[in-house]
Simulated scan of single mutants.
Amino acid sequence: MNNIPDREARSERDAPIISLLGVEKNFGTGTAAVTDFNLLIQPGEFLTLLGPSGCGKTTTLRMIAGFEMPTAGRILLRDRDITEVPPYRRPVNTVFQDYALFPHMTVADNVGFGLSVAKISRAEIARRVTEMLALVGLSDKAARKPAALSGGQRQRVALARALIRHPEVLLLDEPLSALDAHLRQQMQDELKQLQARVGITFIMVTHDQTEALAMSDRIVVMNAGRIAQIGTPAALYDRPESPFVASFLGDTNLLPARILGRDAGGLMLACGSARLHVPPSPEIATEATECLVSVRPEQLAIATERPLFQGIVLRSIFHGSTIRAHVDIGADRPLLVDLPRAAEDLAAPGAMLSLTTEARNIRLF
């Protein structure tokens, strides 16, 4: 996959802050951790590398940081080749998964540690530490030790320590994974607001689709060391280009279907007991006779007339604000549908459900 425009055509203003050009990493185990990786990251962007464990996202982050050297390819920072520049000479800082705070130091000393190593004056360190603690809302915790802080507060200390040296790029390696579900949701919003205030490019690694959707300007979905798809959260969610992206980014139904015919308006399909007429799909070759139908559970609704899918409810699962029904439509797996609580009686096991959706919600692979 190559999304690199002609460099001569780019103005200085539009030049990416980070360019990864044909980057590969092989640890000598026979399978490359990262392969043919091409990506342009824009100044001020919040970009997320998303994918399952072992897909190469953390290795990619470590190559940007300088902790790993690429086996092939180049890494540029504002068009300057930094492929072999050591980490301490890159204007890039990293917030690690475990925060890596010094337990014997106060919050203020942790935040100012990098400046003290750089021989900055005590007065300047004190000024910038005060500024950073105010930015992350920890002014009253300067004298505390990390052990006296909550998980969310320790994360803010790690962020302040990384930001105090004014990096051009901040790298975040699974920054919310150590937090409980409620605090993780709160910190998603806080981290996005902080990034907007400081205006620094953030590059985050996560395997959590909710984090990626909530926080990112763009998401790079990775699989087996390669880029599967790049786009805004809405574009990836609404227009996935592969079954992998459709199923990894949110829940979806992936049901086998047979192509019964074609006409000017699209394709006629048999999907279990359903007969569908859907718009043409560029992913489906003209000679194909089989495909996969993808439709998200929340995009299905009770049909009052002309249902697309009909079937018997096998079981229903309470999800708080919604009920997820598993519906037998005669395919090799149940159709999942999310219904409002008000429709709970209609989704009782054994009930017949008639369901519909807009044609644009159906993706074919």
Rank of each mutant, 00 (worst) to 15 (best):
D98E: 14
Y99C: 10
Y99T: 01
L101C: 12
F102Y: 15
P103E: 13
P103T: 01
P103A: 14
P103Q: 13
H104R: 14
H104S: 15
M105S: 09
T106N: 09
T106M: 07
T106G: 12
A108F: 00
A108M: 02
D109S: 12
D109Y: 02
D109F: 02
N110I: 00
N110T: 01
V111C: 10
V111L: 11
F113G: 13
F113S: 13
F113M: 12
G114Y: 03
G114S: 11
L115S: 14
L115P: 14
L115F: 13
S116E: 15
A118P: 07
K119P: 04
K119W: 08
K119Y: 08
I120E: 11
I120G: 06
S121G: 14
R122A: 15
R122K: 15
R122D: 13
R122G: 15
A123L: 11
E124S: 15
E124N: 15
I125L: 10
I125T: 12
A126Y: 05
R127A: 13
R127Q: 12
R127K: 12
R127W: 04
V129Y: 03
T130C: 10
E131P: 08
E131S: 13
M132K: 14
M132Y: 10
L133W: 05
L133H: 06
L133Y: 07
A134H: 10
A134F: 06
L135P: 14
L138W: 07
L138A: 07
L138C: 05
L138M: 08
L138V: 05
S139Q: 13
S139R: 11
D140L: 05
K141R: 14
K141C: 09
K141E: 04
A142F: 01
A143F: 00
A143S: 09
R144T: 03
R144D: 08
K145L: 15
K145W: 00
P146F: 03
P146I: 02
A147P: 01
L149K: 10
L149P: 04
S150Y: 03
S150G: 11
S150N: 07
G152A: 05
G152Y: 05
Q153I: 00
Q153F: 02
R154M: 11
R154A: 09
Q155A: 07
Q155V: 03
Q155L: 07
R156E: 09
V157H: 03
V157D: 04
V157W: 01
V157K: 05
A158M: 02
A158D: 03
A158N: 06
A158C: 04
A160F: 03
A160M: 11
A160N: 04
A160L: 01
R161E: 06
I164D: 04
I164M: 12
R165M: 09
R165T: 10
R165C: 09
R165Y: 01
R165F: 01
R165Q: 12
H166I: 04
H166F: 04
H166Y: 07
P167G: 07
P167I: 00
E168M: 08
E168W: 00
V169H: 02
V169S: 09
V169P: 08
V169Q: 12
V169K: 13
L170G: 08
L170K: 08
L171M: 13
L171I: 03
L171H: 01
L172S: 12
D173T: 02
D173W: 00
E174M: 11
